[in-house]
């Protein structure tokens, strides 16, 4: 066992599992769940990405669907998702009390102006998965067949894999996680980016991947939702439910946040 620079052990016993997988009709589904990265790998990732990774970075985790016969694959991992985060600071958000804070600061500390390493610290990503170049997805009008997915077919494989999470320095939450369920004839994968910047903004960006094993049909749907915090809060206040609890639950929130972008793609694997 190696020892890190400050003497702490590099490996720890932690929750999670090494790869688990299932193969259905030539589609191999693999998930990996390990603890957050340690100091060394975090530094390595910081260098490669050019931005500081989120506080909780599950850099070893992934969910992958492979189709050996066609060479097609799609994988969801934290590094590739973070590589799509704006690294320039052009689309940078500000915490709710930023203006008040800045005004007080400027009077006292005119010399402290430099914003350290500006980037989109909300870790907002439009990541739709890492795919092989060919066969490639094509734009389509064919929606994911929800009716088939609402049937209570037995779930033969299920996993819920966290890719990253950040508490935005106690100003809310940003998280990217990936769920997958495999039924006898089809599978559904949902990778969700959820971001709540308190008193500022909500974002939900969902990537769904649907595979019908018998036909080799793969549909990928990307839906971006976004709304101002105050607008959502007002709507929720009218529901007579626990507003704070609702604001933590993207499953419930989605219906209150309008869609601002959507793409639908398809590929048929032989």
């Amino acid at each position: 066992m190696m020892s890190s620079l400050n003497g702490a052990p590099l490996d720890t016993h932690a929750p999670g599992h090494e790869d688990t997988s299932i193969t259905k009709n030539g589609f191999k589904i693999t998930t990996r769940k390990l603890p957050i990265l340690k100091a060394g790998p975090i530094e390595e990732m910081t260098t490669k990405l050019g931005i500081a990774p989120p506080e909780m970075i599950f850099g070893d985790n992934f969910v992958r669907i492979e189709h050996a016969a066609s060479g097609w694959r799609i994988e969801f991992n934290a590094f590739d998702a973070l590589d799509r985060v704006d690294k320039t600071g052009d689309s940078m958000l500000k915490v709710s009390y930023s203006k008040e804070w800045q005004q007080n600061r400027q009077k006292q500390f005119e010399d402290i102006k430099e914003v350290v390493k500006p980037f989109d610290w909300s870790y907002s990503t439009d990541y739709k998965g890492s795919t092989a170049e060919s066969p490639a997805f094509q734009s389509t009008d064919t929606p994911i067949p929800l009716a088939l997915l609402k049937r209570p077919d037995p779930i033969q494989f299920f996993d819920d894999v966290m890719l990253y999470e950040d508490e935005l320095a106690d100003n809310g939450i940003a998280m990217l996680s990936c769920k997958i369920r495999v039924m006898p004839a089809r599978l559904l994968l949902l990778t969700r980016f959820f971001m709540r910047l308190d008193d500022v903004l909500f974002r939900i960006r969902d990537t769904r991947v649907f595979v019908e094993f018998a036909t080799g049909e793969v549909i990928r749907e990307y839906t971006a939702r976004e709304e101002k915090y105050e607008v959502v809060r007002k709507v929720l206040a009218g529901t007579k439910e626990d507003v704070l609890a609702l604001m933590r639950d993207p499953n419930r929130l989605a219906e209150y946040i309008p869609v601002v972008g959507k793409t639908l793609e398809k590929v048929v694997l032989k």
């Binding site: 600071g89 930023s98 600061r105 402290i112 102006k113 914003v115 350290v116 610290w121 320095a169």
Partner: peptide, 19 residues
């Protein structure tokens, strides 16, 4: 609230508040 970072002197957090 503040955090140490690999910078020279004082800096502003990219979040718009905090040193």
């Amino acid at each position: 609230w503040s955090d140490p970072d690999e910078i020279d002197g004082w800096g502003l957090s990219p979040r718009g508040a905090g040193f």
